[in-house]
Design a protein around this nucleic acid. Sequence first.
RNA 1: GGUCCCGUAGCUCAGCCGGAUAGAGCAUCGGCCUUCUAAGCCGACGGCCGCAGGUUCGAAUCCUGCCGGGACCGCCA
Length: 581
Amino acid sequence: MQRFHDLLSEGVRRFLADKGVTDVRPIIQYTRPDFEGDLTVVVFPLAKALRQRPDAVGAVLGEWLVQTVPAVERYEVVKGFVNISFSAEAWRRFLLEALPAAGFFPRAERAERIVIEYSSPNTNKPQHLGHIRNNLLGWSVAAILQRYGHEVYKVNLINDRGIHIAQSMVAWMQFGGGATPESTGKKGDHFVGDYYVRFAKAHKQQQAEGGSEETPIMQAARAVLRRWEAGDLHIRPVWLKMNSWVLDGFAETYGRMGVDFDKTYFESETYLVGKQHVMEGLRQGLFHRKEDGSIWADLTAEGLDQKLLLRSDGTTVYITQDIGTAALRYFDFQMDRSIYVVGDEQQYHFKVLKALLQKMGAPYADAVHHLSYGMVDLPTGKMKSREGTVVDADELMDEMVAQARRLSEELGKVDALSAEERERLYHIIGMGALKYHILRNDPQRRILFDPAESIDFFGVTGPFIQYAHARIHSILRKASGAARPETAAGYAPDGAEVALIRQLYRLYDVFANAVENLSPAPLAQYAYQLAHQFNAYYHDHPVLKAESEPVLHFRLLLLERVAEALRESMGLLGIEMPERM
RNA sequence: GGUCCCGUAGCUCAGCCGGAUAGAGCAUCGGCCUUCUAAGCCGACGGCCGCAGGUUCGAAUCCUGCCGGGACCGCCA
């Protein structure tokens, strides 16, 4: 079934062609709610081309559309706008025939291979709220692109080497006394993170005592790093062991969060590849070496600065590793597009990375796309792990689930469920609240998170939408059997019902917007609007006690589709939809 | 010095690839549970869309300048 937009657009084109105008693109938009109509044709551009008054053109155009487009029932001209109403029958048919199969989502004309990197944690500390935003955003954008028909690969790049890793190692070796996550009952990433904080404290204290930046413990950390790079047989096992503790912890966190990866890269395996590429670039004369032995790229011609690629001692820097990772990734996936979900503080870094890859003539250079998002701020400012001013990811998830439990028990609606089912439900609701809160806003905006004000469960929230879904399922459960569309054949939907179908129809555009902007936010906004509209409908349209069989079955079908649209849009945010709550 | 992001109701945000009288939630005030789940519904209050120019039939939306907030330009990652 053709989309209403296309029907109108073609009608307007034919109207114009009839008058010898072919170079004007019809502007079709949704009619504002306070006017009667479904879609609106903006006639100003047409009036200009035809050199007539807008309202005059509008009237003729409206008449033309009613005559030539069967689904168009009425029109109304308001100033320079022609508001078109499609027949209730056309909308009913759309509900029956087009939804859900082709109606909800557009598909990519050409499937791309897309690699999306997100999360990219360091193995020296547990994840915090900032990681939550990254993880949820990355996972969701991947889901959206995949739904669009692209071939999407989710990858994680674990930062498992470097001075900060050496720091937790030193602290553990000096202060740990052989303790392990098992012996202390601590989750591995938190266990290691404690030593990272321990290091920072000891360093600070030694600084105060010694009166200098340089401290014994910092020297020890650098020594560990050097020994690690040399493959020292005493250091490597410690490194392996501590990393595995952290990775076990991460696996648990990812599992709860519901995010996953198709492949995991480790920086320890990619940094040398980057170094090789830099050396190769040096041979080709793309880069230059300074007297001290350090290697640089001159990007001033590209409007950027001089960029260090290898330190004077031959060790790699951040950008070197990313060069290596990009190469490996292309080897693995031959992607058309490579999306990096990384905070906006690194915009410059990715500009440089892209420019470098282009300079090196890498076939994957142009594919680099930095999906930059805003940081999560606390009322006290930016989160810093070292200073302990973070909202811990695991604790926050615990808190959200606990709050869902508290509220549910208070309301007492799910007492009939088994203890196991209830816990599962609390998880779904708590995570729903968290995910929605994080994903509902434009990714590039900063989010202010106030731990004192907990994330809400009322209003524009995940649970609000989940609740609407549960209400629908409550009705569907009580109805004996599924909706029988054929029984509904004779029914003409009323205004509220047409409005609801129109909202379902709109998901197509909302989704297209999400794809184009690599943003889950439009879907989140949409799901709320649909849920809200359903709630209002629910308020004054009885379903199970509908006045006749056709009405009953029409409404059942409508609600099935609403529930499905809610599930689809929220599913792309990684939010599960309970059937009761 | 340069680059990027943000500025819309008391607060948190939609709308921004130009269209009609700028929308939600929270907060405040008021109404609705003997009828399919009140995590709900309905209403009231609340706006120089940061400021000034420009483009246009039409600007919150595009352009320029300014003001305010933030980020980045490291032999940290």
